[in-house]
Every structure is written in structure tokens, then in C-alpha cells.
């Protein structure tokens, strides 16, 4: 059975989707990823779909699900690398993925995740952080 690999990078989980998804594969990814978030106590999930040329309503829904489920487990999700044609198609389809955070590429996605998590930490307890630009 085909499976999409999930990489652990510090507090984050990184998934790069390199193959064209079909429904079963996407559902497996959803389950694997959520289990991995829980097991690793991950703070963030970064999904790179820059190699994906088709995102239909089902895969769009899976991405939304992953974001919502991770949020319940206290992890932020960022989807990066959406191709222009895919973005236009998703919007036309009526699926603007409103619950999902997005970034241009992996680098920007990492920055976004870092800022989201620092923001969380500083608001909670760690006041010794020098960064207070908000």
C-alpha cells in the first residue's frame, strides 16, 4: 500500500506530497498525520503541495480536516506551494479553504509556523522573550 512519508523536524511535521492523490491515499495521509501530531506532540504541520497539479473538493476537504484536527491537538497547519492554476480552480469550485493557513513556499511556511508558535508561547507564560512587537 502506497503511503505519503511524514518527516519530523523539531517541533514540526513536514509532508511533501509528490504524487497525484486519489481518495484512499488522502484519507490515509489524514489519519497518519493526526496520529503523528499526537505521538510527537508536534506544534506545527507543514504540507507542501507544490508538486500537486490537481486538488478537487475531496482533497480540499482533507486539507481542511487536517487543519481543524491539528488545531484540536494544539498544532498549527500551514499549506504551502499551491500552484496558481490550482488556486484559481479551487476558488472557482467554491472551495477557498478558509480554515487553512497558506504560504508561498516551504521557507515562508516555516517562518509563518515559527511566528504562530512564538506568538502562542509569549502570550501564555514566557515573558522573558525579548520580542514584543505586538
Amino acid at each position: 500500500m502506497e503511503r505519503i512519508p511524514i518527516l519530523k523536524m523539531g517541533q514540526f511535521l513536514l509532508v511533501t506530497i509528490q504524487v497525484d492523490l486519489y481518495d484512499r491515499l488522502a484519507l490515509d495521509l489524514e489519519a497518519d498525520l493526526i496520529n503523528a501530531v499526537e505521538k510527537n506532540a508536534a506544534k506545527g504541520v507543514l504540507i507542501d503541495i507544490s508538486a500537486v497539479s490537481i486538488v478537487d473538493s475531496f482533497m480540499g476537504r482533507i486539507l481542511g480536516n487536517i487543519a481543524n484536527m491539528s488545531r484540536l491537538l494544539d498544532a498549527q497547519t500551514v499549506v504551502v506551494g499551491i500552484q496558481p492554476a490550482v488556486a484559481i480552480t479551487l476558488v472557482e469550485l467554491g472551495l477557498p479553504l478558509t480554515g487553512v493557513r497558506t504560504a508561498l513556499n516551504v521557507e515562508r511556511g516555516m517562518e509563518l509556523l515559527n511566528s504562530l508558535i512564538t506568538f502562542d508561547d509569549t502570550t501564555e507564560e514566557w515573558d522573558d522573550d525579548t520580542d514584543n512587537d505586538h
Binding site: 497539479s53 490537481i54 478537487d56 475531496f58 500552484q83 492554476a85 484559481i88 472557482e92
Partner: peptide, 15 residues
């Protein structure tokens, strides 16, 4: 873009 729209539509209908 039109290719992507077409293939996405096909994906939906096949599902």
C-alpha cells in the same frame, strides 16, 4: 488553468 479546471471537474464527476 483551463487544463486544471477540466481535470478537476473530471475528478469530481468520477468520484
Amino acid at each position: 488553468v483551463n487544463q486544471t479546471k477540466l481535470i478537476t471537474a473530471a475528478s469530481e464527476l468520477v468520484r
